[in-house]
Structure formats: structure tokens, C-alpha cells
Amino acid sequence: MNQLKEAAIETDVVIVGAGPAGLFSVFELGLLDIKAHVIDILPRAGGQCSELYPEKPIYDIPGLPVCTGQELTDNLLKQIEPFHPTFHFNEMVETLVSLGTAEKPEFRLSTDAGKIFHAKVVFIAAGGGSFQPKKPPIPKIESYEGTSVFYAVRRMEDFRDKNVVIVGGGDSALDWTLNLHPVAKSITLVHRRDQFRAAPHSVSAMQELVAAGKIDFKLGQITAVEGEDGELAGAILKGNDGVVEKLACERLMPFFGLTMKLGPVADWGLQLNENLIPVDTEKFETSHPGIFAVGDINSYPGKLKLILSGFHEVALAAQKAHRYVYPDKKLLFQYTTSSTNLQKKLGVS
């Protein structure tokens, strides 16, 4: 335990999720001198805004008649710059353990990348849950996951001298086709059509490799896998022409995008209601003191899953968080328009 404590990152608050609610939490908490570390499973900030709607217009952000998901994210990042949050991307919080008491909460969080955090309060701003790879409905595929079937590349060495089948037509499928080609024994790219929703230069690079006979391209889909003890021996391809064939392979990488799953939040001992976290509407605190839930992931009577609701929620939750982080300090309500104290924190005075 002492060893773990030594390796831990100490912070006032850990914010789980870097979508709009998580980002604006940094702002509201920052105004109250509460330092934040933000963890998100995605490689960048923005949550659903960046992942699902980067180009789509949003019309119901107060004061912004129209902005895209990406613009909103970029603006929020700019807005929270003065508070220097530390981001931990590509990481998922796996465990959340309470170490403190109801009056003096303290938490230990661990991520799938092995980082440990000690925080006085936790803001869960996890939206619809964590974005995780979609798993194709291939019977028994789960028994090969992590040994022969991968949804991401953690170590290139896992693919050295292997016969690799990659499924999909997006950037992930093409990037890994190109990156693994020099390492793997063979690459077969399988896609349902001969068009690709990927960077044009990746598409042409891939097509050149196919034309040169260096990789294979098959039109169709993988319907079954064969092998034993987690070691893949082949994948069954059903071609668009109706022909079924077996592709001998030891590695399979399906790329069907991401889906939202509640994920480990379900195991943190919090009261849940249909995959949402019930909170009160004064402090947006969960059933556990010191753990707040804001944005799409919470539920209360009348809840609307709107970005503007999330913004309101984090402002109120921050007030209570201040009581936990600074139990001896009195919180004075101030406006950013007039308070020199707040303006100093924002770096504008």
C-alpha cells in the first residue's frame, strides 16, 4: 500500500471523461482553486462532440447560435487553459476505491495503463459511458480476444511474422494495414465494398501494395473463426460474390468503430438506475459522498441530456466539492465580470 501511495498522482479532483461536462468541470473547479486531472479513454478531448459530431452543428448552446462539436470542444479547451488541467488520454479508469470518510473523502483510482491517482473528490463526467471497440457478431470471437483477435495494436511485436487479417475500411483499418505490412508475414484486408472512408493517401498507398501483390484485398465479410485455446488458425470469409473461403491466419483485427458501454463505472459500488447514476439536484452528488456525477451520465427527476444542463450541473457540484477540498475555507460567491480574484485566476487582470 505504501509503495502504491508513493507512485500515485496526488490531485484535488479526478475528472472521469473529457467531454463538454468534464471540460467545463475544470473551469468551475478551477475558479475555486481545485486542481484537476482529467482521464479519458479516447485519444483527445471532446467526448461525443468530437467522436460523433465533430462537423455537426449544435444550436442549443446558450449564447452560441451555432457551433460544431469540434468548435465547442476547442473553445472549452481554450476556456480552461488558465487552470492547466493534466489530461490522461487513451486511458480508462478501472477501479475507484474510497479511502476516506463521509466528512473527509479520499479516493484511489487506477487506470488500465497502470496509473494510480489519489483525489479528494471525483467528478464522473462519463457521458454515455466509455467508447469501446465494436465487436463483430462472430461466434466465439471473445475466446480469441487478447491472444489472437485485437481491436487495437498495443505492441507491434504481437504481429511479427504472423498472417494477419484486417477487417474494415476506415482510417484504423488502413493505418494498421500499412503499419503492420512490413512486420507481418502477410496481410489480408477485408472490406464490404471497394470504397474507403479513410485519408486518400492511405487508400492509394494500400492500393499500390495490393497492385504490387504485397498484400491481399478481399471484398466480403468474416463470418466465423477457427482455432483452439485462444490461438487462431483461420477466418472464414464470405465473399460478396457468395464464395466462402478460409483465410489461414493467426491474427484478426476487426475495425468497426466505437460504441458506448457503461464499462467499469458499473463496478464502483455506486447506486445505478438503468445505467445512469442518480444524483441530487443541489450538489449533483452520487450515493457516495465526494463522488459527483455530471452531464449525460447522471439522472434526476426532469433530467434532460443537454450540454447546457451539464454546464449548470458542474457549477453547482463544484460548490460542494470546495467544501471537501477546503473544509476550513469559506466560499465567497463571486462573478468573473467583477471579481479581481477570479480574474487573476483566469489570467486576465
Binding site: K134, P137, G170, R192, R193, Q195, R197, F256, G257
Partner: peptide
Amino acid sequence: EEDMLDFAFDV
């Protein structure tokens, strides 16, 4: 929509 269907199964 065709692009997005690439992320569906058994298209």
C-alpha cells in the same frame, strides 16, 4: 450513410 454502414455488421 454508405460510409457509416462500414461500421455496421452483416451489411
